[in-house]
Design a protein around this nucleic acid. Structure first.
Lengths: 144, 144
DNA sequence: AGTTGGCACTTTCGAATAGTTAGTACTAAG
DNA sequence: CTTAGTACTAACTATTCGAAAGTGCCAACT
């Protein structure tokens, strides 16, 4: 992405490429979970918020707006009071969500290995399993 | 993940599940790009930094440490001055990186659709294509 | 001789973003 | 009457990120 010719080839490694932000939206902390939940079906706002444990209204609203703008999510609002809004995946969003789902399944399925690695790392760093501490600074190659 | 029995089943939708942070590490802004770069081969620190456009030394160091601790990345440091450190994917990291790569390929390949969606969204929101503005607040269902 | 560049980080401080809380306006149910 | 629900937004606080400088040594260049 160093000049105009290169700009025609999407490349997430280049910070100036629009694909970078699109990728960040679908893999952001709340984006990936919202997409994965929507793969299960259409949700209303608060139902989605309950599905994605820990997300605030603000962050969810912001995330859904980004995803909608990128074309991954479809928002259907009825002119009612109280509001009635439904969110669902677009075809593009579904393609992305399926890959996110694959990733999530893998990470969940191999969590024991991650936990074991963490314990081993912590023990190597501090000599005490379960206690994480950054290696000391300086120009010396750190332990690991 | 509401009680001890549920804690045995990894579930990224639950904020208390360790798989949540593991997923956040590999899909974080810099994590996903570092993993994708390492899929290309082993990198030394500054080579990786050059590969991932826009990342600071601080964020890269922090990201690599997280990934190493989770067991996705292997760090090989020689006891030399100047330092000589190499980063590569573990087997677990490779499995994850391959899925990240699939996702990246998809997002890059369908970027034109994302850009078209953004233009359409901005036009619908502001009447001016290319100019993004959040819908007005209140309890009224927003336009979209 | 001095200067510069390279290596892989860490530290400090300000900028940016995420999170918390309260608010909007209406209806239905208790 | 109060409470709960709906889908957000605004204001303030907390946390994280980014920019810049620093570490200590060696090699290459002037």
């Amino acid at each position: 992405m160093e000049d105009d010719i290169d700009r025609l080839v999407p490349d997430v490694f280049s910070r100036r490429c629009d694909s970078r932000t699109a990728l960040e939206h679908v893999t952001g902390r709340w984006g990936i979970l919202a997409m994965a939940a929507l793969l299960e079906g259409t949700f209303r706002f608060n139902a989605l918020r309950r599905r994605v444990d820990g997300v605030s209204e603000k962050m969810l609203a912001q995330t859904l707006q980004q995803l909608e703008r990128d074309g991954f999510v479809h928002r259907e609002a009825r002119p009612t009071i109280p509001p009635h809004v439904e969110y669902s995946l677009t075809a593009l969003g579904r393609a992305v969500a399926e890959r996110l789902h694959d990733l999530i399944e893998l990470v969940e399925g191999r969590l024991p290995e991650v936990l074991a690695a963490r314990a081993a790392y912590d023990a190597a760093v501090t000599g005490v399993p379960g206690r994480s501490r950054a290696p000391a600074g300086g120009a010396t190659p750190g332990p690991a």
